[in-house]
């Protein structure tokens, strides 16, 4: 690994050339992920009114749990930024603690979503029922699976931070995770607006 460092006003994650390129690569990954979500959003919007004999968005959504999920995810985005903030202050304990808070919030988000999906399916509203439900479960489920992957990532990252402390590599990994988590938050903002709010409007 390249160890050429330039001591400048650059943030610590960007001190190393190679690590900077890796962060850049992560932005490229986020771009491809955005294309995935863009496609699913397009499918959802096109199929939204095709409810067949199934429920309409208005009948299906209960906004209470969804608003709770949104506030949980926004809070987890905030605690994730505090983790990076602590890391930049060279407080490894703070970074790990905020990361653990973030993943706990992420877990409660996923649990709420699973509960919502289970209720729908038990009421007979599976994704076989209508084009709207297919689009809905695929879009929201893809986001939920991304959050689930993020939780696994955060657990491994927290262990690594505990074992290795704040090195060039672990700083970059934390930064990339923060980018991923905030990206998922942005996707959820649009999910909340396009799927849920527009659905009950």
């Amino acid at each position: 690994m390249s160890t050429t460092t330039t001591t400048t006003t650059l943030p610590p994650e960007f001190q190393d050339n190679l690590e900077s390129i890796r962060i850049m690569g992560f932005w490229v990954f986020l771009t491809t992920d955005l294309v995935l979500f863009g496609s699913l959003f397009a499918v959802y919007v096109v199929f939204r009114s095709r409810v067949g004999l199934g429920p309409t968005p208005h009948q299906l959504f209960s906004m209470g749990p969804v608003l709770t999920e949104t506030l949980i995810l926004l809070t987890s985005s905030f605690t994730c930024s505090l983790s990076l903030y602590s890391a930049r202050k060279n407080r490894v304990k703070g970074a790990i603690s905020w990361l653990v808070v973030t993943l706990a919030l992420g877990m409660s988000f996923v649990l709420l979503e699973i509960r919502e999906f289970t209720t729908d399916v038990l009421n007979g509203h599976t994704w076989h029922q209508s084009a709207f439900l297919s689009g809905f479960f695929t879009l929201v489920g893809t986001h939920g699976s991304h959050v689930t992957v993020g939780i696994g990532w955060a657990i491994m990252l927290a262990i690594q931070l505990g074992m290795k402390g704040l090195t060039l590599t672990t700083r970059r990994k934390l930064y990339a995770f923060a980018l991923y988590w905030h990206f998922l938050d942005i996707v959820w903002i649009f999910l909340f607006t396009v799927v849920y709010l527009s659905g009950i409007a």
Partner: peptide
């Protein structure tokens, strides 16, 4: 939160981000 203005300069992220947004909005 994503510290868009940080890093080695906007020449790194902005083109990728512009590409992402235009593809996403385009689709």
């Amino acid at each position: 939160f994503m510290h868009l203005r940080e890093g080695r300069g906007t020449t790194w992220q902005i083109p990728v981000l512009a590409l992402a947004v235009s593809i996403g909005l385009g689709i």
